[in-house]
Amino acid sequence: MLTHIGIEPERLQFSWISSAESTKFIDVVTEVVEAVRKVGPNTRLVKNMVREP
């Protein structure tokens, strides 16, 4: 739905990790952070956004 209206799919991620899988946790955190880093700062749906000149 969010993707349909134009929010980048990388911005909202879901995953399933068991409490014993700390290595998977690390992997997914890194993956999510890298994916968001790639799409850049969020400009959509942000309240009171200070726009860069």
Partner: peptide, 15 residues
């Protein structure tokens, strides 16, 4: 028709 557009165009459309 909307799905076929690029993501930025979709955002513009809904905006």
């Amino acid at each position: 028709k909307i799905e076929a557009r690029e993501i930025d165009k979709r955002w513009k459309f809904f905006e």
